[in-house]
């Protein structure tokens, strides 16, 4: 399947990735080759087959709603690249 550089750019923007022009060319070729390979799934008639999203059959996993200790604000923020008080700081979102 032919994947254009524009297709690659579209997927990259959805994935929040910025690719170099070399990476775009590389991925267009490689993803195209992989998609050619996965075309073989079309050989199979899957009409009426239920899709599997999870290998072990299970319903919702319920538990009692009991308050448990949590890791707390200080440890939650310990890896923050930038913080302000008890918040994660990010570049300005609203002008």
């Amino acid at each position: 399947m032919k994947i254009s550089v524009a297709d690659v750019e579209h997927a990259a923007s959805l994935a929040r990735l910025e690719l170099t022009s070399e990476e775009k060319e590389l991925f267009a070729g490689q993803i195209g080759a992989i998609l050619d390979y996965v075309e073989k799934l079309k050989e199979l008639d899957t009409e009426g087959i239920v899709p599997t999203s999870h290998a072990v059959p299970m319903e919702n996993a319920f538990r009692e709603d009991i308050v448990q200790p949590s890791i707390g604000v200080a440890r939650s923020l310990a890896n923050a690249p930038e913080r302000e008080g008890s918040f994660f700081a990010v570049p300005k979102v609203i002008e």
Binding site: V38, L41, K42, L44, T46, I49, V50, P51, T52, S53, A55
Partner: peptide, 11 residues
């Protein structure tokens, strides 16, 4: 979705 259906066949 096609891959998820083939996953059922493999299982």
């Amino acid at each position: 979705v096609k891959a998820q259906k083939v996953r059922t066949l493999i299982m």
